[in-house]
Design a binder for these strands. Sequence first.
DNA 1: CGCTCCCCATAAGCCCAGCTTATGCCCCCA
DNA 2: TGGGGGCATAAGCTGGGCTTATGGGGAGCG
Lengths: 309, 309
Amino acid sequence: MGSVEEQPADTAHGSIAHRVPDLGALELLLAVARLGSLGAAARELGITQPAASSRIRSMERQLGVALVDRSPRGSRLTDAGALVTDWAGRVVEAARAFDAGAQALRVRRDSRLRVAASMTIAEYLLPGWLLALRAGRPDTAVSLLAGNSAAVAERLLAGEADLGFVEGLTVPPGLDSAVIAHDRLIVVVAPAHPWARRRRPLPAAELASTPLILREKGSGTRQVLDTALGGLARPLIELSSTTAVKAAAVSGAGPAVLSELAVGEELGLRRLVEVPVDGVALARDLRAVWPTGHRPAGPARELLSLTRG
Amino acid sequence: MGSVEEQPADTAHGSIAHRVPDLGALELLLAVARLGSLGAAARELGITQPAASSRIRSMERQLGVALVDRSPRGSRLTDAGALVTDWAGRVVEAARAFDAGAQALRVRRDSRLRVAASMTIAEYLLPGWLLALRAGRPDTAVSLLAGNSAAVAERLLAGEADLGFVEGLTVPPGLDSAVIAHDRLIVVVAPAHPWARRRRPLPAAELASTPLILREKGSGTRQVLDTALGGLARPLIELSSTTAVKAAAVSGAGPAVLSELAVGEELGLRRLVEVPVDGVALARDLRAVWPTGHRPAGPARELLSLTRG
DNA sequence: CGCTCCCCATAAGCCCAGCTTATGCCCCCA
DNA sequence: TGGGGGCATAAGCTGGGCTTATGGGGAGCG
């Protein structure tokens, strides 16, 4: 087994794609882990055994670690392979959610289930629901339109959508609704920030007078915050994506305000810390909505039931 | 601009990799979103502008949706593009965690920081810490060894590791420790399972007498559960990866027992529901450990401080 | 034993995705 | 009215990943 040429680690931030195996390879690794054989995994993915063999091998070369123990009776993961497989599973899971969302995003007039949803819900919740829906009804074609509450209502009333999801404080007229979950905007800081060690809740006035990392004006999140603070939120930076806001907060640029849906993982891993706030109503209901009288039926009802467990 | 040939959606579960753009394309999309220009994004990733243009275009063809609005003054995301970019961000984030872990997994005798960790910690927490560490000290080379508590202790005492992480109930002799987090094993079921609607905690006896979806014997998780139940856990299925256990539980195969670290996202999205249990001690401390007297210094101390925020 | 089956590895050749260089068009601004 | 930033198109190259074909090694069995 010749020694591996070790390149000097390319520590530069540049393009992660060259250091991480592609999705196909990760999927193959998961299949090998599950099935215990390169050949079986290859068959499942519809490729030949030599292709699988070579692909796993080049992945091992790329990572500099042996991933599977080959034997004439099958292949098992090494210890390192088990770890890598777990991490790979998380990448593939995210890719599946991407796929579920993207499929729905395709414009198809003939989709059997047309969903209109607000941004936060479309971003963070819908892909998971769609995965679950597809698990139960693989053939349901879904189309998705994302917009603010008014746009959602418009689509529903025009008969261009079967089910809507909104996150506002009020329900647009002409629609029936059911609360499916709750969301809050929360203030988060990096663990090193002084606010991370506060015992007492932050007064609303102090929040309003502190420059914050925020989404751009016009975003749903920003509107809710501005309303709650009486139009007073002071931006330290304005960024155009939730991810960018999170990244800025994690790096310690300052306090950020985000939906708690967006930062679940960061809080769990202690990369961000929630700062309790006093005297501001940042809670909001997430609701499913439909035209008054037009009870959701068929796939729409199924999706609705998924959202409530 | 030619109409797009629409393929019949290949609804078969087969290989997601053909339906999701590769990591390089997702990264490029994120760069375009952040920089507002194809050319600028291309420069950042070290490719030429035509390459970026063509890559974005083929991604749009693959997804069947326009992602960016091109203008002679730059490019902005479309609404659909903003959604796709958010989903892409989650895939790339998972890939970065993969990369951080994988880099550490490389065997390098000369690594400046050698970490030994138990499986759960290595799987779910270390990649995040390593990302944070790299953000602060980009040049720190880390090596990672994953194993059970005894193995971690052995490495530390032999001077082959600088810092360890264990999840047992006790601290191996010869080591000093600090509690860095808490973990619990929890019982989870799919939302449709009858246990999901329980009001009262499940008695330990009922848990012990019900067949469960479990990790294989010998895994740390399994050991803790068997100890807590007095060696009585009855397997419904035994699976060899946390992901497989989760998937089985989500699909409704039965109740599963897992670390809460492993199911944070599933609980948030209501794909799994926690079942409270009474009369069993399933909590455990996660600890950093080091040889008695050898206080962590340098990068080890930095990593340690990251784990506590 | 020797036959057969199921593993996996290697070799040789093909093909396409993605890159590069070289242009050209469009728009804005000095 | 040039110049520069931004995007698109064209032509050509390269390499990664696939396939088919083949060989070796262990296990089970007549």
